[in-house]
C-alpha cells in the first residue's frame, strides 16, 4: 500500500487533518463536530501516517503511547466533571467562567472525549498493524 503517491499525499494531508480535527473539536459546541468526530479524524491522520511510513514513525510523532492517552482522556473528562462537584453542585454540571464564553468545563470534557477516542482507535489499529508484521 505504501506507494510514493500515498507517502507524498500523507505529508500534506496529515497536518491538514490534524488541524481539521482540532477545528471540529473547537466548534463542536455550536456547529457539527465535537470530541468524538474530532478524535476520529485525528486518529485517521495518524493511521494514514502509519500506513505510509509504518507504525514506528506514527508512534514517534505521537510521542505518547496511544494506550496511555486513554487514561489521560478519561481523567480529563473526570476532572471536568469534578469541578462542579467540588463547588457543591451535582457531578458534571457545566461551569463557565463567564456566560457565553466557549471555554467552560464542557469543552474540557470534550477534550477528554477527543483524547480517549484517539487513544482507543490508535491502540487498536497500531496493535493490529504490528501484529501483521
Amino acid at each position: 500500500m505504501t506507494t510514493l503517491i500515498v507517502r507524498t499525499a500523507t505529508r500534506y494531508l496529515m497536518p491538514l487533518l490534524l488541524l481539521f480535527s482540532l477545528f471540529l473539536l473547537w466548534r463542536g459546541h455550536h456547529e457539527p463536530g465535537g470530541g468524538f468526530v474530532g478524535g476520529l479524524v485525528a486518529a485517521t491522520a495518524f493511521v494514514l501516517l502509519a500506513i505510509a511510513d509504518g507504525t514506528s514513525a506514527a508512534r514517534r510523532l505521537l510521542r505518547i503511547a496511544p494506550v496511555r492517552l486513554v487514561p489521560v482522556g478519561l481523567a480529563t473528562s473526570l476532572v471536568a466533571g469534578l469541578g462542579a462537584f467540588v463547588l457543591g453542585r451535582p457531578f458534571l454540571t457545566g461551569l463557565w467562567p463567564e456566560a457565553g464564553i466557549a471555554l467552560g468545563t464542557p469543552l474540557l470534557f470534550d477534550v477528554g472525549v477527543y483524547l480517549t477516542v484517539v487513544g482507543v482507535v490508535l491502540t487498536i489499529l497500531f496493535a493490529l498493524m504490528e501484529e501483521g508484521s
Binding site: G28, H29, H30, E31, P32, G33, G34, G35, F36, G73, L74, S77, L78, G81, F91, L92, G94, W96, A99, G100, I101, A102, G104, P106, L107, F109, D110, G112, V113, T116, V117
Partner: peptide
Amino acid sequence: AHGRNVVNVILVDFRALDTLGEIT
C-alpha cells in the same frame, strides 16, 4: 448550556455522565 449544537450539548453537558460511561 451556552451551546448551539444540541447534540453536542447533550453529549458533553446534559447527559455527560452517559458519555463518561461510554468512553470508559
